[in-house]
Design a protein around this nucleic acid. Structure first.
Length: 1002
RNA sequence: GGGCGCUUAGCUCAGUUGGCUAGAGCACCAGCUCGACACGCUGGGGGUCACAGGUUCAAGUCCUGUAGCGCCCACCA
């Protein structure tokens, strides 16, 4: 029975079929299994903001390659999938939609309703993202899919927060934050970007009290004068020295403020040499304010208008206030001038509006000791970075130990589990009721008390004379929370930074802090935690370099803090996919590529092959993109102006019809047909899948009568031993590359072996053997065995085509394999990873076949040069050493077949026939008879050119050997190599010279 | 300003610890409907390894500097 496959691989049929098959077989599902070593990866959870782009495809393909490989190696492999709620990003998207479609703000909806709307959004996009991951072939354990707001994650967040609160690691402080006046929230530094804008540089002066002097200063934000609490000069600046300690009056509101000396804030060489100090609205001034204990006057409302501290300017929008302040100073004669200047201004990523530095109450995690433990994890080798250089990014950032602002003024996220009551401390009744009597510790301004599940703090502010109580509650005490509310406490309205829950991801997803064991101390020592013990610490984290600090470092911190173990042993940082112009892909730029477009055009295996192939050590990879014209199917290269959402319409240069450029985030108007995207970088993968398909197709057509039988390698003919040697070498190389995260090499090794060795040579050599009944069975066994091994080696990269062929091969040759046949696995996904006997690797054998390949290529080259018809046999004479001649005799049928040879003569005494093209090789000289065809002049010219090159090479090598320094200092083997080379070249030259001479005499 | 990378064929990239005449894919040229594959087969052309110095018997590879590009961090009254 033959097994005829279609001529072309249909990736889409395969994808549909095997995704369902794998799901049904449950090979992605993992359970704790003490008998097998675990291999665990947690996914970097994609944001539920939108769709995945090519960067995600890269990230997830590489994870899947590792997971599939380790699973085949017999590890208990678990890949935990999930998504991230992505606080500000998601809320901003939903709020924007609300504004665009319903003209409403979040305040119109209220907290509960907005959060409900975001959940709807999340459900929709989570499904889309998980669907994309499935389409990519990701062998995740879907039954364990997590979302960072899941109850288990929430419990982990609450536990961590409570623990940190109790340990004094969480504190509330006034800090300057990046305030987004549009979204009315603080945003992290990394959620801002800086742009140069046209602005002004104003110079004003303040009158010095008790004199007729003025002090001059410049500013780019005149309205902040309302919040000035000092003017600073440099302590050594002669111009201002006499003013230090004096007082100036802010004419706008009459406030008197000191002139202080601050060598850090002031650079005497810049501007006027004097600086106004607004601690509540500028980061440097804030630091200066702390140094000099200056008052900090906040002049802004959360919406960006001036507050009551601005006096008569209260209520004005910030830029309006700027104009009015400037106008008044001018009226007072205290305005000296304004120059236009390009000002670098911080903007919010989300709202695209200017950031205001703003003093507000925030929660922080104190990083000192935590950062130390995380640095230790890397310097002690518990966590290793690949490539190694990325550990610098990690260590440098941690060494700054900057406190982590964890509160966000949002409604979407884990709400901060702290209940606050302002204006009142705890009452005696409450101290009794909460059981705090003997637990209270206090100072003049601070009071705290802890129970098992609650942490109480009270603070007295001597400035305002107010007391505020904070109570942090451990998870699972809803009735207590209600009691607090009844007593006038309110829960903090803020939510936690997204990265707070992401930081717990590697173990919160595994059920930490334990299923229903709130009274047991959390930790992996708890015997109930089978899941934790089985899968934690995870094996490797695969991610991109831009979140080494935001995410990787914080996972290490909380891992050591919460469960006393690092979250992973290895961190593999992969390159970034850039667009054709060298820019990173982002939604803001609108230059992403939708992996589903690539899948639709080239197939998933091609996408994955492309991703693995670009994953090199050092370089990011450019990905030039085309739009596929939806009207005429022609490729239209993407130009810079198509990006950044600038162009919503492209006219196809071919059919002149318009279309909308494609991508994962196309513009919303749908009047025009949308292009799918394409990139020729995926053609190699598509072609390779098809090549593999057709090679298998050929073998399957010739497996009739196949019978399994163990192979005795030493009894096999040379060509079989050769391909087995190459296979063993390749399998070892692929395994080694995977172990070192050298993904690109994995792709290349599998590709080269399959295409250039197996298909181009071995399969071609088999064709004759298959027709011969005597040699057929062995050839079939080796072919089935090698194909089987190729399918396994290629499977982690190209799961679909390999599964298709595996199943087809199962029908034709169910028992197969190397070195001895075995019944095959029901899926290549769980077939054992190839580990071939190292003694199969036979360098000498590879060289012998290499020589034959050289001979065949030489004959083909002559045939091509003289355009001799492929079917016309050529008469070939080879002059060589006897042992080479013996090899060629052995390989005669292949040489005849592969090079189209008529008569073949080999031996040391072989003479050059007349009218022959020659080809000189270190091991042999080939002559191809070309009676009547040969162009003596052209042949002679060619020989002379080659002679010249060889002579030059010889001369260079000889010169090297004549250099005493070289022969004395270079290693003996290198010197010997050069001597052999000289001998070789001299032989070749002699032969070529003789050939030329004979040619000229003909 | 500090740090980490990058610059090799027209394009996109490899090139392990310095050691034969620097590789691949795509593109290009020529020839092939030869019973797996035109997403293919066969062969070919194409590179002063950014530039300038240095170390070394030997440099694409190590060091210094210059130029350009990218990313991260800090700062810019």
């Amino acid at each position: 029975m033959t097994h005829e496959l279609p001529k072309q691989y249909d990736p889409h049929e395969a994808q549909k079929r095997w995704l369902a098959f794998w799901q049904e077989q449950g090979h992605g599902h993992s359970r704790p299994d003490p008998s097998r070593e675990p291999f665990t990866i947690v996914i970097p959870p994609p944001n539920v903001t939108g769709a995945l782009h090519l960067g995600h495809a890269l990230n997830n393909t590489l994870q899947d390659v590792l997971v599939r490989w380790r699973r085949m190696q017999g590890y208990n492999a678990l890949w935990m999938p999930g998504t991230d709620h992505a606080g500000i990003a998601t809320q901003a998207v939903v709020e924007r939609r609300l504004r665009d479609t319903e003209s409403k703000t979040r305040h119109d909806l209220g907290r509960e309703e907005l959060v409900r709307r975001i959940w709807q959004w999340k459900d929709q996009y989570e499904a889309r993202i998980l669907g994309q991951l499935r389409e990519l072939g990701c062998s995740c354990d879907w039954a364990r899919t997590r979302f960072t707001l899941d109850p288990v994650c929430a419990r982990a967040v609450r536990h961590t927060f409570f623990k940190m609160f109790k340990d004094g690691l969480i504190f509330r402080g006034k800090r300057l934050v990046n305030w987004d006046a549009q979204l009315q929230t603080s945003v992290a530094d990394d959620e801002t970007y800086t742009e140069e804008v046209k602005g002004g540089f104003w110079t004003f002066r303040y009158p010095v009290k008790g004199s007729d002097e003025f002090i001059r200063f410049s500013t780019t934000r005149p309205e902040t004068m309302l919040g000035d609490t000092a003017v600073a000069v440099h302590p050594t600046d002669e111009r201002h020295r006499h003013l230090i300690g004096k007082t100036v009056t802010i004419p706008l509101n009459g406030r008197e403020i000191p002139i202080i000396a601050d060598g850090q804030l002031v650079d005497p060489t810049l501007g006027t040499g004097a600086v106004k100090v607004t601690p509540a609205h500028d980061a440097n001034d804030y630091a200066c304010g702390l140094r000099h204990k200056l008052p900090m006057i906040n002049i802004l409302n959360p919406d960006g208008t001036i507050n009551e501290n601005g006096g008569k300017y209260a209520g004005l929008e910030r830029y309006k206030a700027r104009e009015e302040v400037t106008a008044e100073m001018e009226r007072l004669g205290l305005f000296e001038g304004r120059e236009d200047r390009a000002i670098p201004l911080k903007f919010s990523d989300r709202s695209k509006t200017p950031i205001e530095p703003y003093l507000s109450d925030q929660w922080f995690v104190s990083m000192g000791n935590l950062a130390q433990t995380a640095m230790g994890a890397v310097s002690d080798g518990l966590v290793t970075f690949h490539p190694k250089r990325y550990q610098n990014t990690y260590l440098d950032w941690l060494s700054e130990r900057r406190d982590w602002c964890i509160s966000r003024q949002l409604w979407w996220g884990h709400r901060i589990p702290v209940w606050t009551r302002s204006g009142r401390g705890w009452t005696e009744d409450e101290i009794e009721e909460f059981g705090l009597r003997d637990r209270v510790k206090s100072t003049d301004t601070f009071i705290e008390a802890f129970t098992e599940d609650h942490a109480f703090q009270g603070r007295f502010d001597p400035v305002t004379g107010e007391t505020t109580s904070f109570i942090c509650v451990a998870p699972g005490h809803e009735e207590f929370e209600q009691r607090l509310v009844d007593k006038g406490y309110v829960q903090d309205p803020d939510v936690l930074d997204t990265w707070f829950s992401s930081a717990l991801w590697p173990y919160s997803t595994l059920g930490w802090p334990g299923p229903a064991l709130p009274d047991q101390p959390p930790g992996p020592q708890n015997p109930e935690w089978a899941e934790m013990r089985s899968y934690y610490p995870t094996s490797v984290l695969v991610t991109s370099r831009d979140i080494i600090t935001l995410w990787v470092a914080r996972m290490v911190i909380t891992g050591r803090y919460n469960v006393d173990q690092v979250p992973f042993h290895h961190v593999y940082i992969h390159p970034k996919i850039l667009d054709g112009f060298g820019e990173t892909m982002s939604k803001t730029k609108g230059n992403g590529i939708d992996p589903l477009d690539i899948i639709a055009r080239y197939g998933t295996d091609a996408l994955r092959y492309g991703m693995v192939h670009v994953a090199t050590e050092t370089q990011d990879s450019r990905m030039p993109v085309s739009n596929v014209c939806p009207n005429c199917d022609k490729l239209v290269s993407v130009k810079p102006e198509h990006m950044y959402m600038r162009t919503r319409k492209v006219i196809c240069p071919d059919c002149k019809k318009p279309f909308r450029p494609g991508g994962p985030w196309p513009a919303e108007d749908a009047e025009l047909p949308t292009a799918r995207q394409a990139s020729e970088r995926f053609e190699a993968g598509r072609n390779f899948a098809n090549k593999l398909w057709n090679a298998a197709r050929f073998l399957l057509l010739n497996l009739e009568g196949y019978r399994p039988e163990a192979l005795q390698v030493k009894d096999l003919p040379i060509e079989d031993r050769w391909i087995l040697s190459r296979l063993a070498t390749t399998a070892a190389a692929v395994t080694q590359a995977l172990e070192g995260y050298h993904f690109s090499e994995v792709a290349r090794a599998v590709y080269d072996f399959t295409w250039s060795e197996f298909c181009d040579w071995y399969v071609e050599m088999s064709k004759g053997r298959l027709r011969d009944e005597a040699s057929r069975p062995a050839a079939q066994r080796v072919q089935a065995g090698v194909l089987d091994a190729i399918l396994r080696l290629a499977h982690p990269v190209m799961p679909f085509v390999t599964e298709s062929l595996w199943q087809a091969l199962n029908e034709a040759a169910f028992e197969r394999g190397l070195p001895a046949p075995e019944p095959s696995a029901e899926s290549v996904m769980i077939a054992p990873w190839p580990a071939l006997p190292p003694e199969w690797q036979d360098r000498a054998m590879e060289e012998r076949i290499g020589r034959m390949q050289e001979l065949v290529r030489a004959v083909r080259e002559v045939r091509n040069r003289y355009t001799v018809d492929a079917r016309q046999p050529l008469d070939v004479s080879v002059r060589c050493r006897p042992e080479v001649a013996a090899d060629f005799e052995l390989l005669r049928p292949f040489i005849v077949q592969l090079a189209g040879v008529g008569t073949l003569q080999c031996g040391s005494g072989v003479a050059k026939p007349p009218q022959a093209a020659s080809h000189v090789n270190p091991d042999f000289e080939v002559y191809v008879s070309l009676r009547g065809l040969i162009d003596v002049a052209a042949e002679g010219k060619r020989l002379e050119k080659q002679l010249a090159e060889k002579r030059k090479h010889l001369q260079g090598t000889k010169a090297k050997l004549e250099n005493r320094n070289f022969t004395d200092k270079a290693p003996a083997d290198v010197v010997q190599q050069q001597r052999d080379l000289v001998a070789d070249l001299e032989n070749q030259l002699r032969a070529m010279e003789a050939n030329l001479q004979e040619l000229q005499q003909e």
